[in-house]
Simulated scan of single mutants.
Amino acid sequence: MGTVVQLRNQINNSYYQLKDSVDEKLVLVEEKIKSKLLSDVDLVQKMTEYHIDTGGKRLRALLTLGSAKLCGYTKGGRDINLAACVEMIHGATLMHDDVIDLGNIRRGKKTLNSIWGNHSSVLIGDYLLSRCFEMMVDDGNIEVLKLLSSTSSKIAQGEVLQLQHKGEVDMLEETYFKIITAKTAELFSAATKVGAILSNKETKEKEALEFYGKNLGLTFQIADDTLDYNSDLKFFGKKIGKDFLEGKITLPVILLFQNVSSIEKDKLKNIFKQETRSNEDLNLTLELIKKYNIINECYKKAEHFINLASNSLTVFKDSDEKKILESLTSFSLQRTF
């Protein structure tokens, strides 16, 4: 197990470097989120407190803080306010996702909807979004307001697009990338671009960080979708098969369908047409994924976006912040939590 621990520590190190570099501000982001979600309505307070206690990587908030630091932002607390805002948009989308997917567990704990029901969960997600818009208005920058409001709209459209293609095992790769761009990459992109906007950087720096965030987000989502089928990573303790059991069509399934025989294609179609899938169905799919080396194919696709993300930061002078953001691309692909 020593080798496994060393590997895990090496891969996750870039995340902790970013976290350590803005640690004092991240504490203030947490405080800002708590203060913004205070409510006189008892149920709202209970549900938002529970949501905050479930934690998370806070990666999007870290990206906002890290990008602002890269761009030399030092005065004021706008980076803290907007990092909290970005994180709350993410939280709202998770609540809505869990309702749509009938999710029961997230981050190792029961989901809001499994405790308080779908109706309350949707409304709490809306409550988070409404608070976000208040924070955007308070910031007073029209470019930030346009960016984050547009991003919220794109995320919702991505969710609808995914729902529209649910169970389509023959989904085009192009459609998959449209979905994950809208659902994941757009918020990563907004989180990093905000850092450049706060610092009044030129267009080229804004576009560089926007491009970096988008490609980092694509890498992150491909890795997340691939982890769901990577039985070789069982020793890291991440439960596999969640997306499969929910009937989500992700890159491993799309690439698998492209490679299998006609008989195997029919089997996969039947599996994903069903209302529910069994562990036996999952084991069959995992065997096919191993047979056709699909995990490796997914990581090859992701490496393309890693290179794009890393190369986009060349417009910035060398610094510790730049090195951390560059190395974060490997965390997105190979992370274990």
Rank of each mutant, 00 (worst) to 15 (best):
C298D: 06
S149Y: 07
Y16H: 13
S310P: 09
N81F: 00
D42M: 06
Y50V: 04
S199W: 02
L216D: 11
S130N: 14
I249K: 11
V29W: 07
N9S: 14
R107C: 14
K34P: 02
L328N: 01
Q274V: 01
L65S: 05
L18W: 01
L70M: 11
E287N: 08
K110E: 13
V22N: 05
K166V: 07
D320Q: 15
S39L: 14
K32F: 11
E326L: 08
D228V: 03
Q162K: 08
N113S: 12
D20L: 09
K110D: 14
L333K: 15
T250N: 07
V41W: 10
K291I: 12
E246H: 02
A68P: 00
E321V: 08
N113C: 12
S114A: 13
D20G: 11
S278V: 00
S327W: 10
L28W: 10
D170F: 13
K193D: 01
K248P: 07
L245K: 12
G117L: 08
R277A: 01
W116H: 02
I197M: 00
L288C: 02
I89H: 04
R277C: 03
E168W: 10
L233G: 11
N81T: 02
L325Y: 10
K146T: 09
S14V: 05
E174Y: 05
V169D: 02
Y50L: 08
L216I: 12
V29H: 06
E207G: 00
L251R: 08
N270I: 09
S312Y: 07
M1A: 08
A223Y: 08
Y16V: 05
V41G: 01
L288H: 10
F188G: 08
F331A: 11
I142N: 02
S130Q: 15
T74V: 09
M136H: 00
K193S: 09
G167V: 11
L145E: 01
L37M: 13
Q274G: 06
A156Y: 04
F337C: 11
H51N: 15
K214H: 10
E205Q: 11
T93Y: 03
G66V: 02
D318K: 12
R107L: 13
I142H: 06
L268T: 06
L245W: 01
N293K: 08
L18F: 01
M136T: 05
V137L: 08
D170Q: 13
I306F: 14
K301W: 08
L255F: 09
L233K: 12
A182H: 15
E275F: 00
N13I: 08
T3S: 10
T276W: 00
L63H: 10
M135L: 13
S152C: 13
K201W: 04
D40K: 11
S312M: 07
L308N: 14
F272D: 01
N259A: 07
N81L: 11
K214Y: 02
G66E: 06
L123T: 03
F257P: 03
